[in-house]
Design a protein around this nucleic acid. Structure first.
Lengths: 211, 211
DNA sequence: TTAGTTTTGTAACCTTTGTTACATATTTTA
DNA sequence: TAAAATATGTAACAAAGGTTACAAAACTAA
């Protein structure tokens, strides 16, 4: 039940009255794997709280090529959507369900009210910003400082932690899009990582060797 | 006088009583060009409000190589320092004065009080976060999607806008450090940009041709 | 089971970026 | 003014990553 999940994922920081209000004003939504939850330039009318699943946050260049910035997990929100209260209300990123995911969508107006009226919500917002900032810095570090093979391994390890499994179900093409490179480059580097005994390759499947 | 500059740069968003309190509790500090204002892993005890000058915000890799993330201008604050209220209080970035700069340093404790007690401060924080987020996205775009010659030109144009002058006083080595590449690469690409009539090179000096 | 589709492997080649080494030009200092 | 220090120019080569083209393997559906 939604209320229980809300308490479980957000109860550590949001107070009881607020959680009750979230249930009253929030709109429950489910998305299937690969659904686009919000797209670039779409108006942001709701702030999403993620109850279940994982969401990819992506950026796009002029030619339509993507780049994964970070993942959202259950118990988190997209700070991009928070900034919409000020200034532009258009999304600068694309959010895609990495797995089947459940969200509660909160109208922007409520977010503003709570921001000025509820301390626990303010703390949640601050904490969210901090987490996102750290993720953005980490994304910058990876792109700027790591070579593609290192980025690839980090991506795989991260994904395996996220899914709580050493085996990742993914195609080379999908990895290439997330890392903003070509499928051939990924296949080449994956084979190299396999030779270095860091992973094991299968069709639609990669096993990360943790040892 | 400090009070007037505060009103001039922050009066559009912070209310009068808050500006008066900032003057009371804030510590005025001046830095010279190339001074390190705060370094990586240093504890963050103050939030800086930039009154005059420009500040470079840099990230560093394991080998000590830098990468410019963005510039702070007068009327802005470093959101990295805001997040220190929650969680870690260690700086994840290095802040270096790009020009002689004046700051007002606000104790973290005050920032927390104001965040829960003053609406104009909350709006300022939200706005700051939005600006920084956009800058971070822009930094990611540049690193991920642009080739080095494009990044270089963007860097030069940006610097020329910031300094309100077509002529930038800078060494190739410094550019190389900001963009996380080598001096030879920068010299090569600068010469190329000069051949394309986009810039004019001098010693310690680059003129951006706007035409 | 066969034909088509999807996914992966790999070779060959190109472009961009990084490295080393050294030359030249300009400024500073003795 | 000569010597030293600093800044820039450039060649030659290396390495990483991107592109094209095609083959082979694995799966799917008729």
């Amino acid at each position: 039940m939604t209320k229980e999940i809300l308490y479980q994922k957000f109860g550590y920081i949001l107070d009881d009255s607020l959680i009750n209000e979230i249930i009253n004003v929030g709109v429950f939504k489910s998305f299937s794997k690969d659904d686009i939850i919000i797209d670039i330039n779409q108006p942001m009318l709701y702030i999403p709280l993620l109850l279940k699943g994982h969401i990819k946050i992506l950026r796009e260049d002029n030619e339509g090529n993507e780049l994964l910035i970070y993942f959202l997990e259950a118990g988190e929100t997209c700070t991009m959507s928070l900034t919409c209260c000020m200034g532009t209300s258009k999304s600068k990123i694309r959010a895609v369900a990495e797995q089947d995911s459940d969200l509660i969508m909160i109208p922007v107006q409520k977010m503003k009210e709570w921001f000025h009226g509820n301390e626990s919500w303010r703390n949640f917002i601050l904490e969210s910003y901090q987490i996102r900032f750290d993720e953005m810095l980490d994304a910058i570090d990876s792109i700027a400082f790591l070579k593609m093979d290192e980025r690839l391994l980090k991506y795989l390890v991260n994904k395996s932690i996220l899914n709580e499994s050493d085996t990742i179900l993914v195609k080379h093409q999908e990895i290439a899009e997330d890392l903003h490179t070509s499928r051939v480059v990924i296949s080449r580097l994956l084979k190299q990582l396999e030779n270095e005994k860091k992973i094991k390759l299968g069709r639609n499947k990669i096993e990360v060797i943790t040892s």
